[in-house]
Design a protein around this nucleic acid. Sequence first.
DNA 1: TAAATACTGTTAAATAAATAACAGTACAAA
DNA 2: TTTGTACTGTTATTTATTTAACAGTATTTA
Lengths: 220, 220
Amino acid sequence: MDATHAFEHLPHKTIERLSQYRRALLICLENKKTHIFSHEIAKIQHITSVQVRRDLMLIGYSGTLRQGYNIQELIDLIGEIIDSEELTKVAVMGLGDLGRALVNYFHDKRSKLDIVAIFDINPDKTGTLFNGVPCYSVEEIPTIIQEENISIGIITVPAVQAPVTAGRLVKAGIKGILNYTPTPIQVPNDVYLEELDMITTLEKIAFYVKLSDEKNALKQ
Amino acid sequence: MDATHAFEHLPHKTIERLSQYRRALLICLENKKTHIFSHEIAKIQHITSVQVRRDLMLIGYSGTLRQGYNIQELIDLIGEIIDSEELTKVAVMGLGDLGRALVNYFHDKRSKLDIVAIFDINPDKTGTLFNGVPCYSVEEIPTIIQEENISIGIITVPAVQAPVTAGRLVKAGIKGILNYTPTPIQVPNDVYLEELDMITTLEKIAFYVKLSDEKNALKQ
DNA sequence: TAAATACTGTTAAATAAATAACAGTACAAA
DNA sequence: TTTGTACTGTTATTTATTTAACAGTATTTA
Ligand SMILES: NC(=O)c1ccc[n+]([C@@H]2O[C@H](COP(=O)([O-])OP(=O)(O)OC[C@H]3O[C@@H](n4cnc5c(N)ncnc54)[C@H](O)[C@@H]3O)[C@@H](O)[C@H]2O)c1
Ligand SMILES: NC(=O)c1ccc[n+]([C@@H]2O[C@H](COP(=O)([O-])OP(=O)(O)OC[C@H]3O[C@@H](n4cnc5c(N)ncnc54)[C@H](O)[C@@H]3O)[C@@H](O)[C@H]2O)c1
C-alpha cells in the first residue's frame, strides 16, 4: 500500500545520497537535460558509478541502456520514497545569524519541507515576519507547534540555551531535532536527533590535510 | 618521531568522535570535573560506552579503574593526534549571513584552527574588519592565501558562485575545502573536500520521523 | 579475607557499507 | 551479420564500523 514500507530497510547512507542525487538532478533538469548516466551522477557526488547504480537498484529504479536514467522520473521516485505526503513543517529556534541564514536558504527551495515558524526571546524580533515566516515568543512554543503540526525543530540559539530549548521542543511534541549548537542535548528515544557542529567537520578536514602534508614531506 | 604517523589508520569515524569527545571534555573541565567515565562520555555523544573505550584504546589512552579518564590528559592527547603543531589557518569565502555566523562562532573558540581571512566581492565589505578578521577582495585571494599560509577554505558564497570560488581557492594552493553551498564542486584529488548541505540532513531527519510515525500508526 | 561491584581494555563476532566482478543488452561500426 | 563499445543491474567479495563477550582489577562490603 504505502511505498515507504518497502524502503524501510534502505541503508542510512543511501537515504542521504538519494537526497543528494535529487538535489543534483533538479539542477540538471533546470539545464534542460532529460537523461543522465550513473557515472555523471557519480562525478557530481564524488562517488563511484557502481554505488549510484546500486542505490538505484535498491529503490527499484531502472534506467535505459545507452540513455541512462530519466531525470524527472527519478526525481519523482526519490520524492515518493523520502518525502512525506503532506508538507513536513519545521521550526527554527533562535533568529540570529545562523537562524537567518537557514530561513533565507529555505526560502527559495521548493521542497516538501517548510520552515513555518521561528521562535526567539528577543522582543524586538518576536511578532515580526522574517522572509515571510512569523517569529513567535518562546511562550508560544507549545501552542504553535501543536496547532501548526510542526514535526522538526532546528536549534540555533546560543549554546547555553540549547538544552532548555530542546526540552521545550520535546515537551511540545516535536518528532525530530537538528541541533546546530556545540552543546550536546538529551532527548527521549522517540525523538530523532542529529547534531552537527562545524568544528568537528573542520577538525576532520584539518587532520586529513595534515596527514597528506606529512606524506608529501616524507616523499621528498 | 611524529605521533601522527601511528594514527594514520584510525577509522574516519573515530577521528570525528575524537573531536566531539574533546568538545564535550572541554565543557566538563570548565565545570571543574577532573575525571570522567566512558559511559558518561557515551551518554553525551549518544553512543555506547564500548565505542568510547574502543576509540580510546585505538589512540592508546588508558584510564584508571574506578576513576575513569583524566579529562585534561585526554584533551591533550586528542590534541596531539588531530591538531597540527602550528595553527591551521582558515579563510571564509563570502561574508553573508552564514559567513558571519561562522566567523562569530569561531571567535570565542580557543582552537588550533583560526579564521584569519574573509573574501567577498562586495566593496562595502572588503577593506573592513569583521570580528577582528580582515575582509579582502577576491583579487587578493592568491596573495593572501599564500602569504598567510591558509590551508582550508570555507565556501559560503551564493550557490552559483561556488564553482568559481572553489577554482580560485584551488589555484591559490588551498589544501582543504568545506563547501556549504548546495552546488557540488569539483576539485583535484589532492584537495580534501567536504560538502555539507542542511537540506540533506533535514530530509534524512524527515524520512526517519515519517518512518517512525508509520510504525506507530500500524501498532494502533 | 572473600565476595560483590563497577569499572577498563582487548579480542572476537556481527553488521553495515563499499567495491569488485561480471552477466546482460542495445546500439553502432565494420 | 558479427564484433566492439558503452552502458545497466545484480550477486559476490571485501572493507569498515559497531557491538558483544569477556578477562582483568581496584575498591568496597560483608
Ligand atoms: N554548527 C555550526 O556549524 C554553527 C555555526 C555557527 C554557529 N553555531 C551555533 O549556533 C548558535 C547560534 O549562532 P548565531 O551566530 O546565530 O547566534 P546569535 O547570537 O546571532 O543568535 C542567537 C539568537 O537566539 C535568540 N535566543 C537566545 N536565547 C533564546 C532562547 N532561549 N530561545 C529562543 N531564542 C533565543 C537570540 O535572541 C538570538 O536572536 C550558537 O550556539 C552558535 O554557537 C553553530
Ligand atoms: N549548507 C547549509 O546548511 C546552508 C545554509 C544556509 C545557506 N547555505 C548556502 O550558503 C551560501 C551563503 O548563504 P548566505 O545566506 O550567507 O548568503 P548571502 O547572500 O547572505 O551572502 C553571500 C555573500 O557572498 C558574497 N559574494 C558573492 N559572490 C561572491 C564571490 N564570487 N566571491 C566572494 N564573495 C562573494 C556576497 O557579497 C555576500 O556577502 C548560499 O549558497 C546558501 O545557499 C547553506
